[in-house]
Every structure is written in structure tokens, then in C-alpha cells.
């Protein structure tokens, strides 16, 4: 555990809770991609199956349980409790174009050809692109609520901080995981455009709106 890893995890946790609170307090999931949230629920489920097979630490187990629980709670709020506010027409990204290639890649490129390991790899690859339906939705409507941008910023910072964590671990522990690093780089790059808009607009008190 190093400072980048810890702040990365906390940033991830903050993102998840910001989104849950936003939906709960406003009684609305307007502007939120339900498809991205389903993908994240799949990501956590596929990755944390090792909860059943191995114990690493109290921190590890509790964070995993919290992430999974919050992911399903978010999906429930969007598709059941506040379904009437869900903007399905604008959430039109074709997720099969992500899930199918990512599934194929996980079968082809993995550390060990075993069910748990392939599911772990699948979750790493899927996570790297799971935000695309959300970004697509924002580009389609041309705007995002400020609270939604805070969510996206925390979510983007999480994998960025993990990149620093991996540099740290490589130098001080000789540890590296090529699959996680490459996927983490892809994931971070996908946020770059958003980071730019967040710093130049949202942090200066303006709403995030894209030119028509």
C-alpha cells in the first residue's frame, strides 16, 4: 500500500458515493448512463469473485463488498426506483460493441487460462472502456450537470493515481502487471478530453456544455 494506491481507492469510493448521493438526493438519474453503471456492476462482479476463494485483508474485503454493493444499488436506483427519470433515449451506446471484443480479448490475452483469471482479465479490460456510454451520452446531449462532472473527475483520477501506484510498485517492489498497466493507460487516456474540460470550465464555475 502506498499513497497513490490509497488515494486512488478513496477517489474511486468518492466517485461511487457522489453518484449514489446525486441520484438519491435529486430523486433523479437524469444525465446518467445506466449502461455504464451496468458495465461497472459487471466489472466488479467478475473481478471480485476471488472474495469467495481468497482472503487478502480486511481493507481489501470491505472495499470490494462496498464497491459491489454500491454498484448494484446504483443500477437499482436507475432501472427500478427512479426509472421514470432515466433518459434512455440519449443512452444509446451499443454496449455489445464493447463487451464482445473485450470478452474475446480476455480469452486471448491473459496471465493464466483459467475461469477466474479470464474473468479477472475481462473485468480489467471492460473497466477501461466502461465509461464510454456515459461520455457518449454527454457528447450527445452536449452538457452535464456539475455534480456529474465531479463524479467523472473522481472516477478518472482513480485510475490515473493507480498509474502512479504502478510506477511506485515497479521501482520499490519490482512488481508490475502488464495487463492492468496497459488497460489502465487506455482508461486514463479516455478521460483526458474530459479532464481538460473539467479544469477549463467546471473549476472556473461554469457548467460543462459542449459547443453545438
Amino acid at each position: 500500500m502506498n499513497i497513490f494506491r490509497l488515494t486512488g481507492d478513496l477517489s474511486h469510493l468518492a466517485a461511487i458515493i457522489i453518484l449514489l448521493l446525486k441520484i438519491w438526493k435529486s430523486r433523479s438519474c437524469a444525465g446518467i448512463s445506466g449502461k455504464s453503471q451496468i458495465l461497472f456492476a459487471i466489472v466488479f462482479t467478475a473481478r471480485y469473485l476471488d472474495l469467495l476463494t481468497s482472503f487478502i485483508s480486511v481493507y481489501n474485503t470491505s472495499m470490494k463488498v462496498i464497491y459491489i454493493g454500491c454498484a448494484y444499488a446504483t443500477v437499482y436506483l436507475i432501472y427500478a426506483k427512479f426509472r421514470a427519470t432515466y433518459d434512455g433515449n440519449h443512452d444509446s451506446f451499443r454496449v455489445e460493441f464493447l463487451v464482445v471484443p473485450v470478452g474475446g480479448l480476455a480469452v486471448l490475452i491473459n496471465h493464466t487460462f483459467s475461469p477466474l483469471e479470464i474473468l479477472w482479465t475481462f473485468s480489467i479490460y471492460l473497466e477501461s472502456v466502461a465509461i464510454l456510454p456515459q461520455l457518449f451520452m454527454i457528447s450527445k446531449t452536449g452538457e452535464a450537470e456539475t455534480i456529474t462532472t465531479h463524479y467523472l473527475f473522481c472516477l478518472g483520477m482513480y485510475r490515473t493515481l493507480y498509474l502512479f501506484n504502478w510506477v511506485w510498485r515497479f521501482y520499490f517492489e519490482g512488481f508490475f502487471d502488464m495487463i492492468a498497466i496497459v488497460a489502465g493507460l487506455v482508461q486514463t487516456v479516455l478521460y483526458c478530453d474530459f479532464f481538460y474540460l473539467y479544469v477549463t470550465k467546471v473549476l472556473k464555475g461554469k457548467k460543462l456544455s459542449l459547443p453545438a
Binding site: 481507492d9 496471465h111 502487471d177
Partner: peptide, 10 residues
């Protein structure tokens, strides 16, 4: 070329 024995990360 990989060291994937540790799955302690989230």
C-alpha cells in the same frame, strides 16, 4: 513478462 501473483489491488 508478468508478475500477477498479487491480487491485492482493487
Amino acid at each position: 513478462l508478468t508478475n500477477n501473483t498479487s491480487k491485492d489491488e482493487l
